[in-house]
Design a protein around this nucleic acid. Sequence first.
RNA 1: CGGGCCGUGGCGCAGCCUGGCUAGCGCGCUUGCUUGGGGUGCAAGAGGUCCCGGGUUCAAAUCCCGGCGGCCCGACCA
Length: 583
Amino acid sequence: MENTIKVQPLRYTENSMLWSKLFIPTLRENPAEAEVVSHQLLLRGGYIRQLGAGIYSYLFLAQRSLLKITAIVRQEMDAIGAQEMLLPALNPAEIWQESGRWDIMGDNMFRLRDRFGRDLCLGMTHEEVMTSIARGELRSYKQLPQIWYQIQTKFRDELRPKSGLLRVRQFIMKDSYSFDIDAAGLDVSYDKHYEAYCKTFDRCGLQYSVVEAHSGAMGGSQSHEFMVASDAGEDYVVRCPGCKYAANLEKAGSRATPPLAADPEGDFSPEPFHTPGQKTIDDLSKFTGLPESSQMKSLVLIADGKPVLALVRGDHSLSETKFSSAIQAIEFRPAHPEEIRDLFGAEAGSLGPVGVKNMRVIADEALQGRRNMIAGANKDDYHLRHVTPGEDFEPEYFDLRAVAAGDACLVCGTALELIKCVEIGHIFKLGYRYSETMGLRVLNEAGEEVKVIMGSYGIGVERILSAAIELYHDKDGMALPPAIAPFDVVVTPVNYSDAAQRTAAEEIYEDCRKVDLDVLLDDRDERPGVKFKDADLIGIPWRITVGKKLAQGQVEVVDRRTKKSEDVAKEYAAAFVAAQIAK
RNA sequence: CGGGCCGUGGCGCAGCCUGGCUAGCGCGCUUGCUUGGGGUGCAAGAGGUCCCGGGUUCAAAUCCCGGCGGCCCGACCA
C-alpha cells in the first residue's frame, strides 16, 4: 500500500500546468449576451460556455474552481458527521406523487416518459428519494441521528434562466438531509449545519450574511438563508443597521408605520361616492386629497382553487409568502379579471370588503383599530368612505405586509435597509412533512412507533463561484479568493525567448510545486502585456513575474487584488507566496 | 405567459429601411519577419449553410409568412 489515495484531496497539483498546453479560451471582448459581471467574466475568462438557455459547460478553469469549492464543502460536511452519498437524478414519478409534490412542482419540474410510458422526472431536490431510502432502512431510534448528503446535479425548468450561472436549469447542489428522533435532535442537526455553512463560506472567502428565511406553508419551524450582497441577486434582504436583525424580505417584519393622517373620528356608516376612472390607490389619493394610508387595498387571490380577499393599507404591499402561510395555501395566484368580475360584479379598481360573503377576508394587522377608511364599493367607479374594519366587515388579521426600506425595525426601531442578494445556502427545518406523507417511522425507547423529524440543507455550488466574482472583481477581471481560484499562482516570464528568464521561471515553477502550490507556468510566446492581461482576467491571486530584475537575482510577486508588487529573491518566491496564502 | 431586442467566419459588429458587383470591418486564428514590462508592428493567408423552412421576384443576408434559438424587462401593486 504505497500509494495512499486520500478520499477528498483539497489541492489539485498536476504535473504539467503549462499555459501553452492548456485550454483557456479567453476573449478580448464581452460576448453580447452577458449582462451581469460574473457572467461576462466567466465567459471572457474561458471558464464557461453556453449550450442553451440556462445550460452551461464548465471548462477547465471553472471545473478546477468548482472542485476546490466542493472539496471545502465535503470537508465541512464530513466534519459534522455527514455521510456522502450519490442519489439518482432520474426519479420515478411515484415517490413524488406520494409526497404530493408531483403536482405542486408544476412546470418547474422536468418530466419525461420512458419507453413503457412510465412517468419520470429529473430531480430538483431530493427529499423524496432520501426519505424513501430512510423509510426502508431506519427502524430504531438507536440508528438516529443520521445526516446524509450528496453533491449532485439538479434540474429545474426555470421560468426565466438568467444572469449566467446565477439562475440556470441545471446546476450542482450540495444537499443534505437530517433524520432525528425529536425536535431537540433536529435542533442539534440544524445548528451543526449552520456552523458548517459558516465555515464553508468563510473558507471560500465570501462576505455573506445569515438571514431569517421563510419556512414555508408546510409547517417548517425555522429556516436561515446565507446571502451575498450583490446587485446581480434576485432576493431582497431586510437588514437593520441598528441591531443584528436580518431577514429575507419574504419573512421580514417591521413595526407598523403610523398612518399619514389621523382617521376621521365618529360613528359613520359606509357611504358610496362616485369615483369615475379612479382605479389605482394613487388615483384615489389625488382624487380624494387623502393620503394612501387612509385607503384599503383589496387584492383577490385564488388559493387552492378558492377566492380570498386580502386587504392591506393603501401604501403597503402584500407579501405573497406571508399570505400563503397565513391561509396555509399550497398554491395560489392572483385572480383573473373575469373571475373578479364574476365574484364582485366590479373591476379590480373598485373592490372592497364591505358586503363580501362568499370568501375568506383577511387583513393586515396595520388595519386593526383603524376607522373610517376608504375602500372600493364593488361597483364600477364607486368607492366607500367611512369603512371601519371590525364594524363594517369582520376580517381575520395576519401579518401580511411586505416590509419596505425605511420601515422601523421590530427589534430596535431603526430604519431598515433593503439589500439585493444572491442566495448561496439555505437551511431548513422540515419537520414531519415527508416522514408523514411517505411513512418514515422508527421505534422509540418505549417501543412506540414515532415519525422521524427531518431537516434539509442546500448549497449552490456554482453560486459560490459567481458570488465570489460579483464580490471580487475590477476592470481587469476576477480577483478570486485563493481557496477557490483555479490556481494559486502563475509564473510569468516577461520574455520567454530570454534563456535566463525561461530557466528561472521553470525553477520557480518547480519550487512552487514542491511547497504544494497550485501553480501555472505561462510559457506562451506572447508579449508580456498579453500574459498580464490574461492572468488578471482569470483571477489568479498571485503572480510571480520574472523579468529584468533577474539580473539582481530578484523576481516580483504581485497580489492580484491590490496590484501591489514586492521584489523577492528568486529562490524565495515560492515560499513567499505560500506564506501569503497561509495567512 | 405578456412586452422589447437580437440571430451575418471563433468573438464583437456593419450591410437589411430603399433587393442587384466577388458579403465587409475590427479582434482572434495560421505562416514568416519584427517586437519583448500591460492586448507590438509589417506582410501574406485560412475561415461563411448570412438561424431554419416556405413564399414573392429575372434576382433575397435584405421584402412577406411560418418556425427555431438567444438576451433583457415584467408577470400582486388593482
